[in-house]
Amino acid sequence: MHVDQIPVYVYVIVAVVILALLGFVLLRGPKAPPGGYKSTRDPDDPIPGGAGGDGADGSTDSGAGGAGTTVKEAPSLDRPESVGSRMARLRGRLAKSNNVFGRGLLALLSRDRIDQDVWDEIEETLLLADLGSEASMDLVEALQRRVKVEGTQDPNHVKAMLREELLKLVDPTMDRSLAIDRKDMAPAVVLVVGVNGVGKTTTVGKLARVLVAEDKDVVLGAADTFRAAAADQLQTWGNRVGVVTVRSETEGADPASVAFDAVKTGIESESDVVLLDTAGRLQNKAGLMDQLGKIKRVVGKAADVDEVLLVIDATTGQNGMVQAKVFSEAVNVTGIVLTKLDGTAKGGIVVAIQRALGVPVKLIGLGEGPDDLAPFDAEQFVDALLD
C-alpha cells in the first residue's frame, strides 16, 4: 500500500498517541531516584511558610531543597535488640574494661593501715581514671572522713562505702531521659554534634536502632555533606531498620538545607523523631561553630531542636573535655554520648565531663556492634566499676 493510500484516520490515531505520550512525560516531570524523591527547588528559594533571613555569619539561611536532597528508604529490615537486653550485656563489658579502676580502689581502701601515702595512691588512681582533680579531691576527702568514723576492715563495708561516694559524684538525680516525644504536630528533633573520629555518624545510626526498638518512627538527616562517605554510611544504617534517610546528592551542599528537608520530611510523614548528623571538621573552629548555629536556626523555622547530643570519644580523656567546652559554647548541649567506653579504664571521664558542662551523660557506647549503645544508668555504671 502506498503512503497516499493510507486512510486519514490512521494518521489521526498516531498523532493522538504521540501527543498523549508527550503529555505524560511533561506532567510526570524528572524521574525520581530509586527509593525516594529528589528536591527540585533552587537553593536560593525562600523557605515555604516562613521568611528567610541573613544569619549571623552574613549568609542567607536557605530553606528546604537547597541541597537537592533525596529521601532514601530501606528494602530489608533488621530487628534491633531491646534496650533491656543490651543494658545487661553492656554492663558486663563495662565491668571488664574498668576492673583495674574498681579493684585498685578497693584494694587500697581495704588495707589494715591507711596512711597519707595510701591516700596519695588513691588520688593518683582517680586522676588516672580521668575523674578530674576537683572531683578526685572531693572523693578522697569524703572517704577520709568515713574511714575515720566507720573503719575499712570488712571488704563488703568498703565496697558499700566506695559505691555510695562514687554514686554521689556520678549524680543519679540528673535527668538522663531523651527528648524524643512528638509535640505540637511535629517530630522531636535531635541534633548530633562532635568532632570527626568520635563515631558520630555511627552513633546516629545506633541511636536510630534504639528508637526503632522502642517502636518510634524515625527520619535520618545526613547533614554532614563535607565527608563523602558520611551520607552513604548513614543511609546504610537506616536501610537496616527501615528508616528513611534524607540526603543530598551533591557533595559539599548546604548542610542547613539538608537538615531542614529532613525535618520537613518528618513533619509530612508524621514521624516521631528526626536525627540529624552533622559535620565535625571545617577549615577552622569558628567556621564549624557558625555552621552548627546556622543549622539550628534554619531547622527552627520548621520545628524546635529538642535535643543536642555531643558525642565524645572516652579514650581521648582530657582532650574530650576541651572538645566539650568548645561545642557547649556554640550550641546548647543537652546531653553527652560517650563512645568507646569499653576501650578505656578511664571511667571517671563521666564525672569530669558532667561537672564541666553541667549536663548529663545520656548514652554510652561499649563496642562496635550495631546494638552496642544504651542509655546511661548511674547506678549500673558505678556497680560495673566495682564489680
Rank of each mutant, 00 (worst) to 15 (best):
R28P: 04
L19P: 05
V25I: 13
K38Q: 15
N156W: 02
P33C: 10
V337E: 01
V244I: 13
E124V: 06
R163T: 09
S257G: 10
I6G: 03
E141V: 13
D217M: 08
V192C: 06
V350N: 07
V337R: 00
G53V: 07
R240K: 15
V14F: 10
W237Q: 07
G358Y: 12
V359S: 03
V244M: 14
D54T: 14
D254P: 01
V10N: 01
R281S: 09
L220T: 06
S82A: 14
M289D: 06
D372F: 04
P255N: 08
G293K: 11
D54V: 15
S136L: 05
E134L: 13
V158I: 05
I122N: 05
S177Y: 07
Q144D: 07
T173Y: 04
A253W: 02
L106H: 04
G365A: 02
D154G: 03
D44G: 11
M1K: 09
E270P: 00
V350A: 12
E379S: 10
L126I: 11
L106Y: 03
V322K: 11
K216E: 00
T40N: 08
V274T: 13
T344F: 10
T316S: 04
I267S: 01
L26A: 09
S76A: 12
A384P: 02
G55E: 07
A20L: 15
L275P: 02
N239A: 13
A378S: 13
W237A: 14
L21Y: 02
A303W: 06
G347K: 05
D277H: 10
D342T: 02
T202P: 05
